[in-house]
């Protein structure tokens, strides 16, 4: 039985979360993995490379009208693609596009939707999911044959041993009422490492004392090839944009390394970082609660430590 995977792309590149979803599907089923990519703004060569992660075929909906992520249109096209493949299992990565598409597909296809899947299940009817903002897990019994797995970052390791996938065009009719929510523009950082996707994150808090000092965070992030984040007070004070806010009501990250500088570690901030593999805390206050959640800690002045750390990273990583 084939599994269909919805893969997203960004600036012409398939997102890592899409490759994780493909490899998750490969681990889930002995059948073929068919990836679906939507929009004309990605090349066939880029899509063929998805084969390495485990897809045997990529259906490309090569339509300029779908270059932007219009939720209802995407859901419709995907449902048609899934029906044409005859798949009962669908995998996609959680994101601002993946989530609403998954919700609509569940209704369209009469499928059970399993959200926040945290690992490849041994039994497809018994799935481990992350709940309480990463503070616990639920073992979820699924009672339906049709299933949609909305996976969290790191739910699967990206495979690299597959061969190129066959890329085929796929199209279906698009009525105007699929475009009723009109995207009139966007305001987006270009060429940045996206925080939810990042394997390395450097975050700053109030301890940085003002937005004018963010170059210290950015220098370290650049040396590490990391994304930058911040605490809620920092985004509330407009030192940094909201999409960098890590925490309970912001972005939940799951990097291999999270470095927190000048962040005390309120429980709401910890809720956004508790899926990180290794946490480093740098804080002037040795009593900062964040140290209890950390793997490595340094007590000291961020303004003194950050430039030294950036130099040490440059010296040891090159």
């Amino acid at each position: 039985m084939s599994v269909v995977v919805f893969i997203e792309h960004e600036e012409g590149k398939v997102k890592k979360s899409g490759l994780e979803a493909v490899s998750f599907a490969k681990g889930l089923s002995k059948g073929d993995v068919v990836a679906v990519a939507i929009g004309a703004n990605v090349s066939s060569d880029e899509l063929a490379a998805v084969g390495k992660a485990g897809a045997s075929k990529v259906l490309h909906v090569n339509d300029e009208k779908l270059n932007k992520g219009v939720i209802q249109a995407y859901s419709h096209v995907l449902a048609e693609a899934i029906k044409s493949v005859g798949a009962k299992h669908i995998v996609l990565a959680k994101s601002s596009l993946g989530d609403p598409v998954a919700a609509r597909l569940a209704v369209k296809l009469d499928a059970a939707l399993i959200a926040n899947v945290s690992e490849v299940p041994a039994d497809e009817n018994d799935v481990k999911t992350s709940i309480f903002t990463g503070k616990a897990f639920a073992n979820t019994k699924v009672t339906k044959e049709n299933k949609i797995f909305a996976i969290k970052k790191n739910a699967a390791t990206v495979l690299e041993d597959g061969s190129e996938a066959a890329v085929e065009e796929f199209s279906t009719e698009l009525s105007d009422d699929l475009f009723v929510g009109k995207i009139t523009g966007e305001d987006k950082a270009k060429g940045e490492i996206l925080l939810p996707e990042a394997d390395l994150v450097v975050s700053g808090g109030r301890g940085l004392k003002g937005p004018e000092n963010w170059n210290l965070i950015e220098d370290l992030a650049r040396a590490l090839n990391a994304a930058t984040g911040c605490s809620k007070p920092v985004s509330d004070m407009d030192w940094r944009p909201h999409h960098e806010h890590v925490g309970q009501t912001g972005v939940k990250v799951a990097p291999t390394l999270y470095i927190a500088v000048g962040i005390s570690g309120a429980i709401q901030h910890l809720a956004g970082v508790n899926s990180s593999k290794v946490i480093v805390v740098i804080n002037q206050d040795e009593e900062a609660p964040f140290f209890k959640a950390a793997d490595y800690g340094i007590v000291g002045d961020a303004f003194e430590i950050l430039p030294k750390l950036t130099e040490a990273v440059k010296a040891q990583l090159n």
Binding site: E10, K68, G69, S95, S96, L97, V180, G181, K182, I183, T184, G185, E186, D187, K188, A189, E192, L194, L195, P196, E197, P241, H242, H243
Partner: peptide
């Protein structure tokens, strides 16, 4: 309605009835 919706790395602007 005019809305802004958060997307990875920024936001998009949407108009809907």
């Amino acid at each position: 309605a005019k809305m802004s919706r958060e997307i990875e790395g920024g936001k998009e602007f949407i108009e809907a009835k």
